[in-house]
């Protein structure tokens, strides 16, 4: 029984000539207990995909079934309840409320569930204990380090016992030491049977994943099971293709690299094509880049 089932899900922005296809008929099934890493360059649509899976956004076309429920048919109040009960978000920029202390932040999803304060705080305390922040309950977010903040955010994501945890670049703002702690925590959660969706740029992080989905131009172009502890092959390969700076001048450098890889020529021509395609969508790309650039 899949936790998440996407069928031909598309997301379009704008209309007429200005239509931008953010997601192009994506079909994806995520089973319970999987640790899926979603990779792709910026502007590839992985954030849109994550928002749709996280019920923050609605697909333009296609069906999305979360825990046997057709999400698109739900009203906004029901969607909010679905987010509260079934989904735990972990953000790159932590997104804890700065004026609430750590335990109140962790208990926030429960506050919208009409749970009594005592039970709320008790449960939040258990979660904080679990992520190793039992002694930081009454600290304010600004008194914590980045790694501690992200662990608090993980506790918040876990507190309502969700069906799926969605982590959007959880280590993007962290140093390598804190990143390790956070990733190991996620890995532990996976081992305990949680379903985790990790959006990342970093191919190294695919070591922790049981499955890697590679998204580009709004479509899934690679999907493979990967052994835990190993960097996924596809991720390693694809990451080198990322047009990190401008398209044309990089291609020269990439071409040389590609030619040295067996079958590289074919990939290269694909990359060129995509590069040009991407260049025709500058607005969207800038927006996404800004997004990543914040903080």
């Amino acid at each position: 029984m899949p936790v998440i089932e996407l069928k031909d899900v598309s997301k379009l922005y704008g209309f007429g000539d200005a239509t931008t296809i953010a997601l192009d008929e994506i079909t994806l099934r995520i089973e319970k207990g999987e640790f899926v890493a979603i990779m792709g360059p910026s502007g590839s649509g992985k954030s849109t995909l994550m928002n749709i899976i996280g019920v923050l956004d609605r697909p333009t076309h296609g069906t999305y079934i979360l825990n046997d429920r057709h999400v698109a048919r739900l009203r906004s109040g029901q969607q909010a309840r679905l987010r509260r009960d079934k989904i735990g978000f972990i953000f790159q920029s932590f997104n804890l409320l700065p004026r609430l202390n750590v335990i109140e932040n962790v208990a926030l999803p429960l506050a919208y569930k009409n749970m009594t304060q005592v039970r709320r705080l008790k449960r939040a305390a258990t979660m904080l204990e679990r992520v190793g922040l039992g002694d930081r309950e009454y600290f304010l977010p600004r008194q914590l380090s980045g790694g501690q903040l992200q662990r608090a955010a993980i506790a918040r994501a876990l507190v309502s016992d969700p069906s799926i945890i969605i982590a959007d670049e959880p280590t993007g703002n962290l140093d390598s030491g804190s990143s390790r702690v956070v990733m190991e925590l996620l890995s532990d959660l996976h081992k305990e049977g949680n379903t985790i969706l990790l959006v990342t740029h970093n191919p190294e992080l695919t070591r922790f994943a049981s499955r890697v989905v590679y998204v580009q131009d709004g479509a899934v172009i690679g999907d493979e099971q990967s052994a835990i502890g190993e960097v996924s092959k596809i991720a390693r390969k694809m990451i080198t293709l990322l047009p990190k700076t401008t398209e044309e001048d990089d291609l020269a450098g990439v071409s040389a690299l590609m030619k040295s890889i067996p079958g590289g020529d074919k990939l290269l021509s694909q990359a060129r094509k995509r590069g040009r395609k991407r260049a025709t969508k500058p607005t969207k790309r800038r927006r996404k880049t800004n997004l990543r650039g914040k903080r």
Binding site: G54, S76, G77, A80, R81, R83, R84, L108, P109, Y112
Partner: peptide
């Protein structure tokens, strides 16, 4: 606005 976004992401309904 950001606080509102966070609250909504963790499950606050419009009504709440």
């Amino acid at each position: 606005t950001r606080e509102i976004g966070i609250r909504k992401a963790v499950g606050a309904t419009n009504h709440q």
